[in-house]
Amino acid sequence: MSAFRPLPDGVELRVKAQPKSRRPGIGGPSPDGAALRVAVTEAPEDGRANRAICAAVAEAVGVAPSAVTLTQGASGRLKTLRIAGDPARLSETLNRLLA
């Protein structure tokens, strides 16, 4: 199972959130390969961790923060993000992050 799937106007990406982490950043694929691990220092309160996760993913794939939106999993560790942009370029970048 892939951690992302192309859409006509972007990609849909599954992430495994790690809030309140000491070392923020993109951690590669989850052990089962079904999600991208994203660690942030923010606590999961008032949506702060969700906003930080969207910003971290936007920076990692080279899009504006406004191009990344949370579509599922606002209160859980497994989340689905929608990234707007060129699906081919985003897929190539995500394949590198998940390698």
Rank of each mutant, 00 (worst) to 15 (best):
T69V: 13
V11H: 01
G10D: 03
A60F: 02
A56E: 01
L81T: 08
D9T: 10
S30A: 06
A55D: 15
G85K: 01
L90M: 13
P19N: 05
E45P: 02
Q18K: 04
D46G: 04
A56T: 03
S30P: 09
A99K: 00
A84K: 11
G73W: 09
P87A: 04
T80V: 14
T80C: 05
A35M: 05
P24Q: 02
P19G: 13
R96T: 14
R82S: 09
R89Q: 15
A3D: 12
S66H: 06
A34M: 09
K79V: 15
A56G: 04
D86K: 01
A99T: 04
V68H: 08
G28P: 07
S2P: 15
P8K: 04
G33K: 01
P87M: 02
L97H: 08
A55G: 04
E92V: 06
P29D: 00
R22H: 09
G73V: 12
P65H: 01
G25N: 05
G85M: 07
A60E: 08
R14Q: 14
A17R: 14
P65Y: 03
N95T: 08
V63R: 01
A67K: 08
G27C: 04
G85C: 05
L7D: 15
R23Q: 14
D9I: 03
V38T: 04
E92D: 10
A49I: 11
G47A: 03
R82D: 13
L81H: 03
A67Q: 08
P8G: 07
S91H: 03
A64V: 04
P19F: 01
V63W: 00
T80M: 06
G33F: 01
P8H: 02
R96G: 03
P6Q: 11
T71P: 10
P24L: 05
A67T: 08
K79P: 14
I53P: 04
S30Y: 00
V40A: 07
L97D: 10
T41R: 03
D46P: 03
E42S: 04
A58H: 03
V11S: 04
A84S: 13
P6S: 14
I26S: 08
T93A: 11
I53D: 08
A84E: 15
V63H: 01
L97V: 07
L81R: 00
L81M: 09
A17G: 13
K16R: 09
P31T: 02
T69W: 06
